[in-house]
Design a protein around this nucleic acid. Structure first.
Lengths: 333, 333
DNA sequence: TTGTATGCGTTATCAT
DNA sequence: ATGATAACGCATACAA
């Protein structure tokens, strides 16, 4: 069923049908009703592809996520879909499984007029990313990383880690371990580690190589890195840069016959939904991932509508969530 | 940049450029190279919308999910994306936020030739769903619910619950409570409840209204329903139809000064990623959600390729995960 | 082996 | 107020 068929059935021209469908232009009430009747009867729905070609607008935004099966990604997506729905937009999603090359491919593919704008939630920003991004003919918003020349939605990694360290120090901790991730991820790998070092320094605590371990984003990695730290020295507290790492670390501590927080306190970052249902409930930083998705989408639409083309760096709020995985220790350690 | 421009720059006709891009038809090596060179130099990418209109194929599949921010949904999506990627397909995702009306809308919208096929992960199948589904001009695969006339990917809810009850009975439990969800969700609300009743019956245990409570899918609901059961009678074990309900129930039990599993054993269904990191680790049923996504996508592609148009009901595997949240009790209760 | 011309389904311009 | 028609960018039948 195409517009022509409807026109024939209703005894009008295709142009009139189009006018009825889009509620613009003049059309006599009588004809309008005739057309509407036919449309209802045959259940006609316009071909969105043809509309997009003609309108040069697909009403679709592309979203590139590193791993869709993570809680972070799905919360961000929820925020994006919410704003998109208000604007009558659909989401085309590319799951890149943490493969850089896939990210580049997705970026290129989506740029072919298929989408009106792109949101990328990146773990790493390479020169290649930049090169491809600069070629884009549609607006791009980045979540989670800084990308020169594009608006970015950022998490306050520096402040959040400082708050966490402050909290630990106030609880009397002086030997604070750290479990991080690869520095290729600039925001999570570098910024959070640097913040940890700065915070130690700020409290006049020494930075000790033996208390630091670098893993990936898995729970298992948290376990392994904790094990490697315990082999060298025993901290009284550990700051893990994600909740999953913290959860793995806690498991490892327990398996070593130690207790959290009695022997070792642990903190994470992110506040996964189950963080407060763990035993002990995990002290962490709540990030408003859904909000970041909403912000990214709003900014993107501003650019699509050419309302505001300047590139911003927007920091999304966070909140320290103090729970039982951190314990005060005696003042004479 | 369109195909015409490339043609001009390379000194050939648009048709030749098209042939080069799609690697079909004959074209002299020399011209091919010239065209490829221009394409590389200007970074030409074809307009996917125009291709779709011409080819009557968008290489996009639509996916409708009830709530994208759930672990279940994201694991299913991961499976779908994986298969889709192999076929060079993109995903257009509609997040319906558990709103029936949204589901219908999405179904209608996606059917407009925009996508080559649709996968819907439904919580409820109404007559309206059926009516719209029957009008579709593209294939449809359903995940998680039975839908007459369409192929469905189903979870073995009946068997899984039986296994769970068997496990509890073998551990000596006779007063087994139940926390379920609204029967509108046929598979989770009805089938799982019926299986619970059948299993009790099979073990010659009485069904007691006071031990049963119905909530929604949230952790909080698990908490509330557990509280309502405890007010009436105290079971020795509780079967919750999702892990989240189980987690809420455990929290409630703890808050009432009781212990899991010493006082009350608890089981869930689904095996969320953190289930084994809870205290106590949660006994549950592992569902292969990612696999179900893969199966759904494979079946959909079979239908898109018209390889196999028969409607199947495919059950995806499950596995009982016995952990510490269930405790053997003395034989003289 | 290559080019020309037509059509995919819609919207919008221009007459009428 | 309405209808005829060109154009969106691409692929392909047909001609050459």
């Amino acid at each position: 069923m195409k517009i022509k068929d409807i026109a024939k059935l209703a005894g009008v021209s295709p142009a009139t049908v189009s006018r009825v469908m889009n509620k613009n232009g003049y059309v006599k009430a009588e004809k309008r009703e005739a057309v509407e009747k036919v449309i209802r009867e045959v259940g006609y729905r316009p071909n969105e592809i043809a509309k997009s070609l003609k309108n040069k607008r697909s009403n679709i935004i592309g979203v590139i996520v590193p791993k869709i099966s993570t809680e972070t990604a799905s919360r961000v997506l929820e925020g994006i879909t919410q704003i998109a729905k208000e604007r009558n937009y659909q989401l085309l999603i590319s799951n890149t499984n943490l493969q850089i090359e896939e990210e580049i491919n997705a970026l290129e593919f989506l740029s072919n007029k298929l989408v009106d704008g792109i949101i990328i939630s990146a773990t790493e920003v390479t020169d290649q990313h930049l090169a491809v991004a600069r070629q884009l003919t549609v607006p791009l918003v980045v979540i989670g990383q800084r990308m020169a020349g594009f608006t970015s939605i950022l998490y306050s990694n520096n402040h959040a880690v400082h708050d966490l360290v402050d909290h630990l120090v106030q609880a009397g901790h002086k030997k604070i371990g750290f479990i991080g991730v690869d520095p290729k991820d600039k925001e999570v790998g570098q910024v959070r580690k640097q913040a940890y070092m700065d915070a130690l320094n700020h409290h006049q605590l020494p930075y000790k190589e033996e208390l630091v371990a670098i893993g990936d984003f898995s729970i298992e990695s948290g376990y392994q890195q904790m094990a490697s730290i315990l082999k060298k020295q025993r901290p009284t507290a550990v700051l893990a840069v994600t909740d999953h790492l913290a959860i793995g670390a806690i498991q490892c501590i327990k398996d070593n016959g130690l207790s959290v927080p009695a022997d070792i306190s642990v903190t994470g970052l992110g506040d996964v939904k189950l963080a407060k249902y763990l035993s002990p409930p995990l002290t962490t930083v709540h990030y408003y991932f859904k909000t970041s998705g909403q912000l990214a989408a709003s900014e993107l639409f501003n650019q699509i509508d050419q309302l505001n083309m300047e590139n911003k760096e927007i920091y999304v709020d966070y909140e320290l969530r103090i729970r039982a995985s951190v314990k005060k220790i005696e003042r004479n350690s």
